[in-house]
Amino acid sequence: MGDMTVSAPLTSAVFAILLSLAAGERHGYAMMKDARSPEGGGVEMGPGTLYGTLERLMRDGLVVEADTSDNERRRYYRLTDKGRGQLEAELARLDSALAGARLRGLLPTGGRL
């Protein structure tokens, strides 16, 4: 029941974390900062939401903790293949939605410049 299926839309926090980790290993604050940026999903989250979401992502096998460490207290995480697949499925879903929106003239053709 805790597993997220590939077709299920992701929550904004999950999407932002997976998107941030798609670029490589990240520690907590780097993920928070990525998520806050418009390119990262524009999601404002604090440490509680971040680590709670990471906990569930690890339990579902989408993210693992990496052994990288530049500080004893700073923990790094990375995407698993399953997590990358989940992110790609979500991006494809969003892409289809955007394509539909463009067809209806809701967005300029070619996307944002």
Binding site: P47, L50, Y51, R73, R74
Partner: peptide
Amino acid sequence: AMLQTLRDA
């Protein structure tokens, strides 16, 4: 880790 994230922020 949460405290460190706060510190970083």
